[in-house]
Design a protein around this nucleic acid. Sequence first.
DNA 1: ACCTGAACACCGTTCAAGT
DNA 2: ACCTGAACACCGTTCAAGT
Lengths: 182, 182
Amino acid sequence: MRADAQRNRDRIVEVARQVFREQGYDASLDLIAKQSGVGPGTLYRHFPTRDDLIDAVMQAWVDHVQDTADKALAHEGAPRDLLLNWFEEYVRLISVHKGGPAKITGAMGDESSPIRSKCEVLQAASGRVLDELRAEGAVREDVTPLQVARLVGGVATVADTSGLEVATVRPMLEVIADGLLT
Amino acid sequence: MRADAQRNRDRIVEVARQVFREQGYDASLDLIAKQSGVGPGTLYRHFPTRDDLIDAVMQAWVDHVQDTADKALAHEGAPRDLLLNWFEEYVRLISVHKGGPAKITGAMGDESSPIRSKCEVLQAASGRVLDELRAEGAVREDVTPLQVARLVGGVATVADTSGLEVATVRPMLEVIADGLLT
DNA sequence: ACCTGAACACCGTTCAAGT
DNA sequence: ACCTGAACACCGTTCAAGT
């Protein structure tokens, strides 16, 4: 890639991150192009779809997912607390940008989604937490990370759309946790 | 209301119902106006927001909600089956139109939403099912119809967005049911 | 090879003119 | 009192021309 192209690409991603943070994932791409100082065609060359741009913005966030799962696993205490703690972190992770929960949870399990790899990272993190609890015989055997991602992601989506507080979300996550524990 | 105005209003609602069924709740309002044979201004006069039009379309559906709750309550069998049966019907009820689960569940608990009354009907129906089960001591005391609407609505939203089959949704509803049962 | 920006299509929304 | 439809603003997307 030519140096000026790389520079444009980097700036677009940086501007997009800021605009998405302020306006959510459905912000105007035209605005992002303008603020990046490039024509709309340039943005489309680098990122053919909105999700391609979102995927690039989420790149820096992957390590954070891993770390959060690590910390949740290091958590001392009852299985229920560990699970609830992870659920709350999971909601926080996918709710960084408005529209994120719906976007991410909707793409979950879709092999052809541009943000597929990010969904897999989240599922893998959930999988590690579930495996840990299964080793103790604390959760049901038949539950998959995908199902958990959709259940918790569904609650996160509602919370994002309705602007719910953590205190309102918590009891719903407890219901899901209790339904998963043996 | 003048006779021609009433006629226009009725036709708009009828056309909207058909277009929403084919294209979902985010279909073009311009198209609905055109197919109704009225100018865009007429549609806006009758329905200032999209949700006002959606509310009018959902009017005919309220009785159906009541009936479905009645039938679920008449269901003989274990509390878990009754609850699961209602959850499945609930998902079906709000998933008639694409975009419905997100729209309805997102408005749930919002006093100022144009479709508030429809949300209340759904909550009331869930409340009756919960009361029945509480009388048997089968479900937790502290759970509210609003929480159930958001939990099940969240799953329905994900299912709608991702195009999931009933068979895929079912096990997730089981988790929620198990989390609610005592 | 990459970028620009005009151009097009589409949609929601408003409002002056008409009946 | 109600309706029409032109007009405006905004957005996504494409592509011929330019460097």
